[in-house]
Amino acid sequence: MSVKILALVGSLRSGSHNRQLAEAARTLAPGDVEIEIFDGLGDLPFYNEDIDTETDVPAAATRLRDVANAADAFLLFAPEYNGTIPAVLKNAIDWLSRPFGAGALSGKPTAVIGTAFGQYGGVWAQDETRKSAGIAGATIVDEVKLSIPGSMTRFAETHPADDPEVVEQLTTALGKLKANISA
């Protein structure tokens, strides 16, 4: 049986190292795992209950929810912006948390990883992302932790998929996430 993991990348930058990390994860995924990297987080309006009604949900939010509902698990890539979670990733979590108690994240295994420029690799942002996604109903896979420091220098000339240490760590993280997906 094939499983589908939806990857959400918290950076919109075209040369994002977290996007590259997501691409590496897609390449390294076991044969029975499909990782879809969602494009379009930048199109989501900020979450607002006034525009999240039964009759009038923004198209970008409907698209995200549809893709998320079809996923078996989530892999969130969290860079660190000013010591915390990027707004675009938090906004996506907010959209996926609704309707309250039955959002697309509810009960689905979710892992948070990433890379950042600082010496700790975005640990604070990843912790905040785990907290937010967990409150939104996701089942956080706590044994998956991968924070890669020094992204601007480490990946200046090397794609994460070409870094043996990253490949090993990412492969291990994917295996742990997959093990938490119910058959």
Rank of each mutant, 00 (worst) to 15 (best):
K90W: 11
T53N: 09
E168K: 14
L21S: 12
I113F: 04
N48K: 07
K4C: 00
D52Y: 13
R13F: 02
L8P: 00
P58R: 07
I37Q: 06
E54F: 04
V144H: 07
D94G: 05
P86N: 08
K145S: 14
G118Y: 11
G175L: 11
D50Y: 08
T110G: 04
S151L: 03
T129V: 01
G31D: 15
V67E: 15
Y120R: 12
F77P: 00
T84M: 11
M152H: 10
L8R: 01
D127C: 00
I113N: 07
G150S: 13
H17F: 14
N48E: 10
L105C: 06
A183F: 10
I37Y: 05
N69M: 08
R19T: 02
A29R: 03
E34N: 08
A156Q: 15
V67D: 09
T172Y: 06
L96G: 00
A68G: 09
E36P: 00
L6P: 06
T115E: 05
L12V: 06
A61R: 00
L28H: 07
I135C: 01
T139Q: 11
K90R: 15
I51Y: 12
K90H: 12
P160F: 09
K178Q: 14
E143K: 13
T171D: 05
N82E: 06
G31S: 14
A173P: 01
